[in-house]
Computed example of a mutant assay.
Amino acid sequence: MEDCIFCKIANGELESEKIYETENVIAFLDINPKAPGHSLVIPKKHGKTLTELEDELIAEVFRVTKEVEKLLNRSIKPDAFTVGINEGEASGQEIPHLHVNIIPRFEDDGGVPIQAVVNNSPKEEISNIASKIRKASEK
């Protein structure tokens, strides 16, 4: 995509602190880090969500995510990681290009677990929700 900042990074049009790269995926440090080593892993091909990209590319994105975690473990030595994807504006996706956030976590860093980000408990029984999801897979 012509005006996508992540496409420009992937194409080498914009500089980044690249830390890992394959033919189809690039990892670099976030310019507004939430922790030392906060990294982003992106496919070089433009796509806003997981469902817009081929399975093989998504698999490669997650293989690179694993490799970046290994690098961060050896270099930064965090106590843990929060790994996540925001898809869509309502989730906080600021750049409409799929990216995996790898945020090194440290004891007493003030962060919360990823499941604490949302507090919107369902109004209906989870069995009803599960039934709707299973029915959607039949179509």
Rank of each mutant, 00 (worst) to 15 (best):
V117H: 14
N73H: 06
L29F: 06
I42M: 00
K77T: 09
E69R: 07
E87F: 03
A10F: 12
I95G: 08
L50H: 14
E60N: 13
V41Y: 15
V83F: 13
K70E: 10
V25S: 04
H97P: 13
I95F: 08
D3A: 07
S127T: 05
N128H: 15
R63N: 14
R74K: 15
V112G: 00
V118C: 10
V25D: 00
V61L: 15
I76S: 11
L57W: 10
K48L: 01
V41D: 10
A80F: 14
I114D: 05
R134V: 12
R134N: 09
I31V: 10
L29I: 09
H97M: 04
T49F: 10
I9Q: 00
S75H: 14
P33H: 12
E87W: 02
L50E: 13
K123G: 10
F6M: 02
H46N: 12
D109C: 07
I31N: 07
E23W: 14
S39F: 13
T22H: 14
E56Y: 08
A116W: 08
T82D: 01
H99W: 03
C7W: 11
I26L: 11
V112I: 04
L53H: 07
P43K: 01
T65N: 02
H99T: 00
H97T: 11
S16M: 09
A136E: 07
D3S: 10
V118E: 12
A116M: 06
I5G: 05
E107I: 06
L72D: 08
I9S: 02
I19Q: 13
T82C: 13
N101S: 05
N24R: 05
N128S: 15
I19S: 11
I58N: 08
